[in-house]
Deep mutational scan, measured.
Amino acid sequence: MFKRLMMVALLVIAPLSAATAADQTNPYKLMDEAAQKTFDRLKNEQPQIRANPDYLRTIVDQELLPYVQVKYAGALVLGQYYKSATPAQREAYFAAFREYLKQAYGQALAMYHGQTYQIAPEQPLGDKTIVPIRVTIIDPNGRPPVRLDFQWRKNSQTGNWQAYDMIAEGVSMITTKQNEWGTLLRTKGIDGLTAQLKSISQQKITLEEKK
């Protein structure tokens, strides 16, 4: 169930391209415009997507990853294993993690069937560096609404905000991946996880038929 919630949630996290980005210092504006741009692209490019579902990787690479804190999220997933990894191991892992996100997020976007969304009203940021933004996803086919909290983090150097995690039903996506990959990290280390991520990233994206 959580895996499905995570995939549905990713439908609204794909941010804007650099040329049309919203105010990078306001995570609420980023979330709002990102959702609108993403849904528009999914709707307008269905012919290309249906002809070649792996085209979704391109959308992810162009529109999402430049505005997601990939390395920060990847380091959180590694936890204690990050500090013990060599620079070469980290570089290989982050490259594999990025390719994994292209496949995983692309597969999530393949679930698009006309969903709509509501974003919580903007709250004062103050001096906060981590801000959760509640998004409610509404399914046109009558499924119950899904309420999610996207975690946005302020870059201490640039002042810009980027998304790095999502919490559904009190469970963090980062925590879920830590639990899912924990045994592999304990037995085969970061190299074993890197190899698995490379394998997963090679899987073809498949479209979910409308139910």
Rank of each mutant, 00 (worst) to 15 (best):
M1I: 05
F2V: 08
K3P: 01
K3W: 02
R4P: 02
R4K: 13
L5R: 00
M6P: 00
M6C: 03
V8R: 01
A9Y: 14
L10W: 10
L10Y: 07
L11D: 01
V12P: 00
V12R: 00
I13T: 05
A14T: 10
P15G: 12
P15L: 10
P15A: 08
L16P: 04
S17E: 12
S17L: 09
S17M: 15
A18T: 14
A18K: 13
A19G: 11
A19E: 03
A19C: 04
A19R: 03
T20E: 15
T20Q: 14
A21I: 04
D23E: 12
D23C: 14
Q24E: 13
Q24W: 13
T25F: 08
T25N: 09
T25I: 12
N26P: 06
N26C: 10
Y28L: 04
Y28H: 08
Y28M: 11
K29N: 14
K29F: 13
K29S: 14
L30G: 12
M31Q: 06
D32T: 07
E33K: 05
E33L: 04
E33F: 06
A34N: 05
A35G: 10
A35N: 11
Q36A: 09
Q36F: 15
T38N: 07
T38D: 01
T38G: 03
T38M: 12
D40L: 08
R41V: 05
L42C: 07
L42S: 03
K43I: 08
N44G: 12
E45I: 04
Q46K: 07
Q46H: 10
Q46N: 08
P47R: 13
P47Q: 13
Q48I: 04
Q48N: 13
Q48G: 12
I49W: 05
I49D: 05
I49H: 09
R50F: 13
R50N: 11
A51P: 09
A51Y: 13
A51G: 10
D54Y: 11
Y55D: 07
L56S: 07
R57C: 14
R57D: 13
T58N: 05
T58Q: 05
T58Y: 07
T58R: 08
T58F: 06
I59R: 00
V60W: 00
V60P: 01
V60M: 12
V60G: 10
V60C: 14
D61L: 02
Q62C: 05
Q62F: 05
Q62T: 07
Q62R: 07
Q62K: 12
E63K: 03
E63W: 00
L65T: 12
L65N: 06
P66G: 11
Y67P: 01
Y67H: 05
Y67D: 10
Y67F: 11
Y67A: 05
V68C: 11
V68N: 15
Q69R: 02
V70K: 04
V70T: 12
K71H: 05
Y72H: 02
Y72E: 00
A73I: 03
A75D: 00
A75L: 02
A75K: 01
L76A: 01
V77S: 08
V77I: 04
V77H: 13
L78Y: 01
L78M: 07
G79F: 00
G79L: 00
Q80M: 08
Q80D: 00
Q80E: 01
Q80K: 08
Y81R: 07
Y82H: 05
K83S: 10
K83R: 11
A85P: 06
A85R: 03
T86F: 05
P87T: 12
P87R: 07
A88S: 12
Q89N: 05
R90V: 04
E91V: 08
A92G: 06
Y93A: 04
F94Y: 14
F94W: 10
F94P: 04
A95C: 07
A96D: 12
F97Q: 03
F97L: 03
R98C: 09
R98H: 09
Y100T: 15
L101E: 05
L101N: 15
L101V: 13
Q103A: 11
A104F: 03
Y105I: 01
Y105C: 03
G106E: 02
Q107A: 07
Q107Y: 14
A108F: 04
A108M: 14
A108L: 06
L109T: 13
A110T: 09
A110P: 08
M111H: 03
M111W: 09
Y112W: 03
Y112M: 03
H113N: 11
H113V: 10
G114V: 10
Q115T: 03
Q115F: 02
T116Q: 15
T116V: 14
T116I: 14
Y117C: 04
I119M: 05
A120C: 08
P121E: 06
E122C: 12
E122Q: 12
E122W: 12
Q123G: 09
Q123V: 12
P124F: 13
L125H: 13
G126F: 08
G126H: 13
D127N: 08
D127Q: 05
T129D: 06
T129E: 07
T129N: 12
I130A: 02
V131E: 06
P132T: 14
I133G: 02
I133Y: 04
R134V: 02
I137G: 02
I138F: 12
D139C: 15
P144L: 12
P145V: 04
P145T: 06
V146Y: 04
R147D: 02
R147T: 03
L148E: 02
L148Y: 02
L148V: 15
D149C: 02
F150Q: 03
Q151D: 08
Q151C: 04
Q151M: 10
W152I: 06
W152D: 00
R153H: 03
R153D: 01
K154R: 09
K154N: 15
N155E: 00
N155A: 01
S156D: 02
T158V: 06
G159S: 11
N160E: 08
W161H: 04
W161E: 01
W161L: 03
W161G: 00
W161D: 00
Q162C: 07
Q162S: 05
A163W: 00
A163R: 00
Y164L: 04
Y164K: 03
D165W: 00
D165G: 04
D165R: 00
D165Q: 00
M166C: 15
M166S: 11
I167V: 14
A168N: 00
A168H: 01
A168Q: 01
A168E: 02
A168P: 15
E169W: 01
G170A: 02
V171E: 00
V171L: 05
V171I: 11
S172L: 00
M173D: 00
I174V: 06
T175G: 07
T176V: 06
T176L: 01
K177W: 10
K177H: 15
K177I: 14
K177R: 11
Q178S: 15
N179R: 05
N179Y: 10
E180C: 03
W181G: 15
G182M: 14
T183N: 11
T183G: 09
T183E: 05
L184N: 12
L184T: 06
L184W: 02
L184E: 14
R186F: 02
R186W: 02
R186L: 08
R186T: 00
T187Q: 10
G189S: 09
G189I: 00
D191R: 03
G192I: 12
G192M: 14
L193S: 11
L193H: 08
T194S: 13
A195Q: 13
A195R: 11
Q196E: 15
K198M: 06
K198Y: 13
K198L: 13
S199E: 13
I200T: 13
S201Y: 09
Q202T: 12
Q202W: 10
Q203S: 09
T206E: 08
L207N: 14
E208T: 10
E209T: 08
K210L: 08
K210N: 13
K210C: 13
K211D: 06
